[in-house]
């Protein structure tokens, strides 16, 4: 569908992958070109597997993954994808110069001067070994590569975990700069939801291999309300509606879908809920706990 290809940088439909102890079940994700999507979920939810399927590293058991209208993993497709992984795929003994020279062999639109400029800007020495670089520098190195081969889609796996607030801020700024061009799209997975709040247009929540929500960030924030109050004020019917119910010393807290909030007793405290809290409550919905 040429039309869709123009407007959708990424389309994942029904992605399914079976492992002995884990199942990625019918994941659907769509990112329109020019936007930023955050990919959130607890560790082990299947984010990395999904990203690998998007990059063509892992082959799905079922479902379709298309980037720019073409199949995931295709040579032409991956030329346009910039990759920033948790651990770079480069040998530890390589220097930034090695990375640049080797990447230049395989990326058609490689710009060596551009790469040198990026290294300079990020303060990465061309001759230092990767093993000697800090985690933040390794992320920047991968970013430097991604920005030097004309990538249209940037895929990042947990780029900010382990980084100090300054580095995280720098990364967010770079993502903003990247999507200033409306042909550029970003998909980044994180479990630090603060990094999403101002940067992401869309969000996908992945829990236990399933997509719980995928859509505008705004829409997710508005779908739920945080509610808390006296345990005795709740009827069992109310209790059932509360997601991630947690009670301690006679006071409970939890989350309800926005449309259910009206049905609750009026003297409870209801307020807006942050993305972080949504993730926590949804996680707890699997394992309820109360004291």
């Amino acid at each position: 569908m040429k039309g869709a290809a123009m407007t959708e940088a990424l389309a994942v439909v029904g992605l399914t992958k079976r492992y002995p102890e884990f199942l990625l079940d019918g994941v659907n994700i769509t990112i329109p070109t020019g936007y930023v999507m955050g990919f959130v979920g607890p560790n082990g939810a299947g984010k990395t597997t999904t990203l690998k399927a998007i990059l063509g590293i892992v082959k799905p058991d079922a479902g379709v993954v298309r980037l720019f209208g073409g199949p995931a993993g295709a040579a032409a497709v991956n030329q346009r994808v910039g990759v920033v992984m948790d651990n770079p795929y480069y040998p530890e003994g390589w220097t930034a110069r090695d990375v640049g020279e080797m990447a230049g062999l395989f990326y058609e639109r490689w710009s060596a001067p551009g790469f040198a400029r990026q290294l300079d800007q990020f303060g990465i020495s061309a001759t230092k070994k990767i093993s000697e670089l800090s985690r933040g520098m390794r992320v920047k190195l991968q970013l430097a590569v991604a920005l030097s081969h004309g990538a249209d889609l940037l895929v990042l796996d947990e780029p900010t975990s382990g980084l100090d607030p300054v580095a995280r801020d720098e990364l967010r700024n770079m993502l903003h700069d990247f999507v200033a061009d409306e042909a550029h799209t970003v998909l980044f997975s994180t479990h630090i939801t603060q990094d999403l709040e101002r940067t992401a247009d869309y969000i996908t929540l992945l829990f236990d291999g399933r997509v719980v929500f995928s859509g505008e960030l705004e829409a997710l924030s508005n779908s739920y309300l945080r509610v808390s109050g006296d345990v005795d004020r709740l009827t069992p019917a109310d209790r059932a509606d509360i997601i991630g119910y947690r009670a301690r010393g006679g006071v409970f807290e939890g989350m309800v879908p926005a449309d259910k909030a009206a049905a609750l007793p009026p003297d409870l405290l209801t307020e807006a809920v942050t993305i972080d809290e949504i993730v926590v409550y949804l996680s707890q919905a699997k394992e309820p706990s109360h004291v």
Binding site: G56, Y89, P91, A103, F106, Y107
Partner: peptide, 18 residues
């Protein structure tokens, strides 16, 4: 050995090497 240590088989895919 080096390939396995750094997951370079994945790198080859991202670098469009069939």
């Amino acid at each position: 050995l080096a390939g396995e240590r750094s997951d370079m088989d994945a790198l080859y895919v991202t670098w469009s090497i069939p």
